[in-house]
């Protein structure tokens, strides 16, 4: 039971690693990036890759619909009670960075209702290259861009490309059709990010989300160590 003089941290400040009952909360990973780059597809693939070994849940932040949540439900990547949609008032970056209250409520409710959880994936609504997640909401963030959005995006940089814990360059299968130079994208990303990792993936090929899933496993091992 809680005593009145303690401000039981976990429900007050949600970056705390412990929940009010003292147990470790789930690792929270954010996925951001421009509209249509493949965030939801990556979330779906991660759920399929990890759901047999981990207890998982997903929070989506759509801009004006529930489409991402409905796609995940339709694809049945997780049971419905493990998927929550947050409404963002026309400003997805506000809901993941400046005022994270609704997202924190969603992750805590998921832990209360379907927990214990190992991992919660938080997908941001598609936004611009400056959208990043607050450290109060997620422990690590993945920025997803694609080769079809222009191969100069890594060169342009911006907070997402430059600082995300993992940069995913998605849809490499489309590179020949849109004339994107993957080697140049890799070199530009390296210049922007120094030692931070970059994964090139195509969800339309056999390897699919394997490299990103492996990165998530490493983060989880570090979190629970």
């Amino acid at each position: 039971m809680h005593l009145d003089h303690t401000h039981d941290g976990a429900s007050a400040v949600s970056a705390d690693a412990r929940r009010p009952d003292g147990s470790r909360r789930a690792l929270r990973i954010g996925l951001g990036g421009p509209v249509g780059s493949g965030k939801t597809a990556t979330v779906a693939a991660l759920c399929r890759a990890l759901r047999d070994e981990l207890s998982l849940a997903v929070v989506t932040n759509d801009i004006y619909t529930r489409e991402d949540a409905e796609f995940l439900l339709r694809e049945a990547v997780l049971p419905p009670e493990r998927i929550t949609a947050v409404e963002t008032g026309a400003c997805p970056h506000t809901a993941i960075r400046d005022d994270i209250s609704a997202n924190l409520e969603a992750v805590e409710d998921l832990e209360d209702e379907v927990g214990p959880l190992d991992l919660i994936l938080v997908e941001s609504g598609g936004d611009n290259l400056t959208a990043t997640f607050s450290k109060g909401l997620v422990d690590a963030q993945i920025f997803v861009i694609d080769v079809a959005g222009g191969d100069d995006i890594p060169r342009k940089g911006g907070p997402g490309v430059t600082t995300a814990d993992l940069l995913v360059v998605n849809k490499t299968d489309l590179a020949p059709y849109v004339g994107s130079d993957l080697a140049r994208m890799a070199a530009d990303a390296k210049a922007q990010r120094a030692e931070l990792p970059v994964v090139f993936q195509s969800l339309r090929t056999e390897a699919g989300v394997t490299a990103v899933a492996e990165w998530v496993r490493e983060r989880l091992a570090a979190w629970t160590a």
Binding site: E87, T88, G89, C91, T94, A95, D98, D99, I100, S101, A102
Partner: peptide, 11 residues
Amino acid sequence: GRFPAGGHAHS
């Protein structure tokens, strides 16, 4: 208005 208490998502 920037006090982070969720109001931005309500009209």
